[in-house]
């Protein structure tokens, strides 16, 4: 028994460290989940005269995707967003974060444009309201304008199939 004690102590420590290793400190849980999405009024990238207000989307489930042409990981997730937009499951809106309009437009021409509208946040003020600290980030917002999920980092096939799409379908059923 007295020889087993150090072994038990070691095992407990090993379990703690193992669990610790599997956690990702970059995935900072957002305090905005289940809170109203911060309102914003920004002009659209393609139609600078048109001011888009986040209130316009009350009554529908939508995605807000934070992207930028300088963001390398955005390129990884972009084909998936285009595919999702084509499937018509959910409207996707873009938040063009700290970007230049000309390069952003060029980027969309090159990689495809999945966005109903992409609004321009040149100094990242709206981004800070949404707690953006890395790009890309994607928010699922429900019919009442409540943030239901935040995807930190690029959207993946796995996260779409297992989390985002089932959540969207469920939220769309709600009135």
């Amino acid at each position: 028994m007295r020889y087993l004690l150090p072994l038990f102590a070691f095992l407990i420590l090993a379990v703690f460290l193992f669990v610790g290793l599997s956690l990702n400190p970059r995935q900072v849980p957002s305090p905005l989940i289940d809170k109203p999405a911060p309102e914003f009024e920004l002009y659209s990238l393609h139609e600078p005269d048109r001011i888009f207000s986040s209130k316009e989307n009350i009554g529908k489930v939508w995605l807000l995707n934070v992207w930028a042409s300088w963001c390398v990981a955005c390129r990884d997730e972009h084909p998936l967003l285009v595919q999702l937009a084509n499937s018509g499951v959910v409207p996707i809106y873009g938040l063009n974060y700290k970007d230049e309009n000309s390069t952003a437009k060029q980027w969309l021409r090159h990689y495809g444009d999945p966005y109903i509208a992409s609004v321009v946040d040149p100094d990242g003020a709206v981004g800070i309201d949404y707690g953006v600290y890395g790009v890309p980030e994607t928010y699922v917002i429900d019919k009442k304008g409540i943030i239901r999920h935040k995807q930190i980092g690029p959207v993946t096939v796995d996260s779409l199939q297992n989390k985002i799409i089932p959540l969207i379908v469920e939220l769309q059923k709600q009135t």
């Binding site: 970059r26 963001c71 990981a73 890395g134 790009v135 980092g153």
Partner: peptide, 12 residues
């Protein structure tokens, strides 16, 4: 952890 993971671009 002070590794700069390359999982996604943080900022340009």
């Amino acid at each position: 952890n002070r590794v700069y993971t390359d999982r996604f671009t943080i900022f340009r």
